[in-house]
């Protein structure tokens, strides 16, 4: 009966739904939320009420069948105060890591491009592009076009993949990215995504600095070989550990998810680590591992 399982997964697993968390938050906003999350709803209750009202209208009228339409409209809701973007940054190992970052609402492509010209949330990562590296981004006919403002910007190698992956995620399309230098005429340099630059294991959730009580759902992506996870306290001891396996089969990076039981842990700061073990060359004395980490707080 595995054939139907595989067929169904194949039919829909490539679909990357639009991120509707901002709309959901607006539709479910309550006074307690405003009190509990002043950092998030800093704009105040008036804006919230408007956001909720407009979001409902947007949902009702958002039934277009136009190709690709649903990818681009969700984050355009002008009344929402923030949106999530998937932003790719460089790790020490010259591979790409993905963060989901909350940014001011607006054009999702522009917001994503702006995000990677700022430092990442996670101090283990960095960006190859300082603010002002790029001046614009737009969707063309099957391409994503980026205007390169900084004449010194090096749009090659792993660094350029930071831009490619981030903008493809924002566009919801795996289109090539065309880099055009300001003042240059004619077509720019076309770059496609290179799967070899993605870190073999990554954590999407939790975000750096999240707080939890009771339990925590962590998820991310991993190569088919899987990985190990552990949770380590500030004093240095490992308090929880387990294995991470991809939840779907196939080549390339696949999603993983684990629920970490936090009952009975002392409140405080912990490090959640996921690491792959390279066992491909038996007899080798040094292990090559890839890791991703997040600092969380247990309440």
């Amino acid at each position: 009966m595995n054939d139907l399982h595989d067929l169904f997964h194949d039919a829909v697993d490539g679909i990357e739904p639009a991120d509707r968390l901002t709309e959901l938050r607006a539709r479910t906003a309550s006074p307690e939320r405003a009190a509990a999350r002043p950092w998030f709803w800093a704009a105040g209750a008036t804006v919230l009420a408007t956001a909720a009202a407009v979001a409902v209208v947007a949902v009702v009228s958002d039934g277009s069948d136009a190709p690709g339409h649903h990818h681009h409209d969700m984050a355009m809701d002008p009344s929402a105060s923030t949106q999530l973007v998937a932003a790719y940054f460089l790790g020490d190992n010259e591979l790409l890591y993905r963060e989901f970052d909350e940014v001011p609402a607006g054009d999702p492509l522009r917001a994503a491009l702006d995000r990677i010209q700022q430092p990442p949330e996670d101090p283990d990562y960095n960006s190859a592009f300082p603010p002002g590296s790029f001046s614009g981004v737009s969707l063309g006919d099957g391409t994503i076009r980026v205007d390169v403002a900084d004449p010194e910007a090096d749009v090659t190698g792993v660094a350029v993949q930071q831009v490619v992956y981030t903008l493809q995620a924002a566009a919801g399309e795996r289109w090539p990215v065309e880099f055009r230098r300001l003042g240059e005429l004619g077509p720019g340099e076309m770059v496609i995504a290179d799967p070899a630059v993605l870190n073999p294991v990554s954590i999407s959730d939790p975000a750096e600095g999240n707080e939890y009580a009771g339990s925590m759902i962590a998820r991310g992506r991993v190569e088919p070989g899987g990985a190990l996870w552990d949770l380590t306290g500030a004093i240095g001891g490992t308090v929880r550990q387990g294995a991470v396996t991809a939840t779907t089969s196939g080549a390339g990076l696949r999603p993983w998810q684990v629920t970490v039981d936090l009952e009975g842990l002392e409140p405080g700061s912990y490090t959640f680590t996921v690491r792959t073990t390279d066992t491909s060359e038996p007899g080798k004395t040094t292990f090559h591992t890839s890791t991703d980490t997040r600092t969380i707080t247990v309440r």
Binding site: E32, G214, S215, T259, D261
Partner: peptide, 10 residues
Amino acid sequence: MTDRPVWTAD
């Protein structure tokens, strides 16, 4: 699993 999260609705 004996998860007893103390989550709010949000």
